[in-house]
Write a protein that binds this DNA or RNA. Sequence first.
DNA 1: ATTCCTTGCGGCCTTACCTCA
DNA 2: TCTGAGGTAAGGCCGCAAGGA
Length: 249
Amino acid sequence: MGFDENISNNNQDLGLALALGLVHGDENCSWQKKKEEEEGHPCSNGKAYPSLTLGPQEASESAVSSFSNSSSASIKRERDPELMPYLEEENKMNNNNNNPWKVIDVDVDDENHNNCNTRKKLRLTKQQSALLEESFKHHSTLNPKQKQELARKLNLRARQVEVWFQNRRARTKLKQTEVECEVLKKCCERLREENKRLQKELQHLKSMTQTGPTLATCPSSETNNNSSNLHPRFYKTTCYPFTQSSAAC
DNA sequence: ATTCCTTGCGGCCTTACCTCA
DNA sequence: TCTGAGGTAAGGCCGCAAGGA
């Protein structure tokens, strides 16, 4: 199945979801424009709908990932028992009768589409994710033109592309932080070991100082008559092999 | 030249939905 | 069938920079 075909099929399922008013497919929904978010949108009535139960296939592949900002309007009639109470309530609120059939002209460009206040989880298709990922490899941020172009290719809204890149950057940073954390942990462990070793060495040196020069006689001093004039500590510091160890750090 | 306001964008944190074990 | 954990799209807030008045 080709990319376009896939998107096309996705949009069919999407149509159903949109028809039920469960999907953000509206370019003009309240979350879309900041101004509308602040001032409120005519479609917002503060009521949430229950989740639409989708099969794994629909949910993961089609669900809602590919709603288009340029798709044509379609009309669907659906009746879901789970939705009945909500639909009835909404009909009442809209001064409609209790007709259980929810009929919505599904047009993602329809500004008056009135079921956009539900936050529906979107799933990008594998193809969409792959293309986004590929694009991210080339540049982790997008200029407006690139964003628009990518959105057009993917049949997504520019905002969705933007959000994907934001989240992707966040994931990258998180991963990077985890890697750095691991490196620091290892570094910390090494330093701890080194510290232990140096403590031991220090203790050894101290004990040698206490026992006096006889135990630490430098071999060369035995054959060198002048060496007897040297302080015992000198022997230790010059002959003791550990003294160079810490320099390796 | 400076200040203030608006707008747009990215970062960050959080929320909510969805999938899966 | 239920549930908790994990993944992730999206919401919300903040800071910053650019541009205009």
